[in-house]
């Protein structure tokens, strides 16, 4: 049971990291529906780098770097060129899905390195995730940088007039968001399940996207949501540990996805809508081009 609990926390850490990146993105008004692609890139290239160099550190550095690059690419298309952000996000997802399948295939199989040690039985990344949630919350709501990010996400034209560079702020956010996505992917492939397999993420990125909507852009609610989905994911993989003999294991695999839809349904209720509408960054997904 303890192991199930620990594994659930490991899984939720991945959701936390990826969704936190997306939250920062969205707070600045940029929607990236392609986090799954960013995570796949981070996971695959991080895996390859770690395996070739036998260094976890290098693996994570590569993953974070590629995540940041993809974030910048998303920024270039959607901030500088003012493209439709959904098209760009879809592009990054499909690019990640397609290219990592090709790149990673020769490395199919286990990582073959000693596991990263745990800290009092729990994933070290779990503690790191907690710290990052705290830092994100603090920066976004207590600092002038956070105010800048939020104002760019609410009303870029007004922010620009008051002397904030919209483009620079948004680039910063998409880069940090991408880095967190790439890192989350690497935590999956280097720690949670250190085996490379084709399209192994199976929807983690999209669930993380739903989590951000669910969180009303609040890092603490986001943390709660990731804990819920991390546990559900673990349960869907190993239902026999908790509820032996209930439902086929294939039906269990659908549980996180069904739950996501149910959560979105709950969010459609009027009570939630009002709060959601108030919290939503006003300029989310709207291209802003200085005339």
């Amino acid at each position: 049971m303890w192991e199930f609990f620990a594994r659930s926390l490991e899984a939720s850490t991945i959701f936390t990291l990826a969704a936190l990146g997306e939250l920062i993105n969205q707070r600045s008004g940029i929607l990236n529906v392609g986090i799954e692609g960013v995570m796949l890139f981070g996971a695959t290239l991080g895996f390859i780098a770690a395996q070739l160099s036998e260094s976890y550190l290098l693996g994570f550095v590569v993953a974070i770097a590629i995540g940041g690059l993809l974030g910048l690419m998303h920024g270039f298309f959607s901030v500088t060129l003012g493209a439709d952000q959904v098209v760009v996000g879809m592009g990054i997802w499909i690019l990640g899905f397609g290219l990592t399948t090709y790149i990673g295939n020769p490395y199919t199989g286990p990582l073959g390195m000693d596991r990263i040690p745990t800290i009092s039985g729990l994933s070290p990344f779990f503690y790191l995730g907690l710290v990052l949630v705290l830092v994100t919350w603090f920066v976004l709501s207590k600092t002038s940088l956070g105010l800048r990010i939020r104002s760019v996400g609410e009303n870029p034209a007004v922010a620009e007039v008051s002397g904030i560079s919209v483009a620079r702020t948004r680039y910063l956010c998409v880069m940090v968001g991408g880095m967190l996505g790439g890192f989350g992917g690497a935590v999956y492939s280097l720690f949670y399940n250190p085996v490379w397999n084709y399209n192994f993420l199976m929807g983690w990125g999209f669930i993380a996207l739903a989590l951000v909507f669910f969180s009303t852009w609040n890092p603490w609610i986001l943390l709660g949501g990731s804990l819920l989905f991390g546990t559900l994911w673990q349960l869907s993989l190993n239902p026999q540990l908790v509820l032996p003999g209930v439902m086929s294991r294939y039906l269990w695999r659908t549980v996180p996805f069904v739950t996501t839809i149910i959560v979105l349904l709950i969010m459609a209720s009027k009570w939630f809508r009002i709060r959601w509408g108030a919290a939503k960054p006003e300029a989310l997904g709207v291209p802003y081009l200085k005339e």
């Binding site: 298309f77 060129l81 003012g82 493209a83 439709d84 098209v87 760009v88 879809m90 592009g91 990054i92 499909i94 690019l95 990640g96 899905f97 397609g98 290219l99 399948t101 090709y102 790149i103 295939n105 020769p106 084709y198």
Partner: peptide, 25 residues
Amino acid sequence: IGFGVDYALLGVLMITLVAFQFFYR
């Protein structure tokens, strides 16, 4: 060649298309 040429092409086509979206405007 390695497995997954069709997957890789999918990705390259998609991201090129995103870049070319610029020229529609």
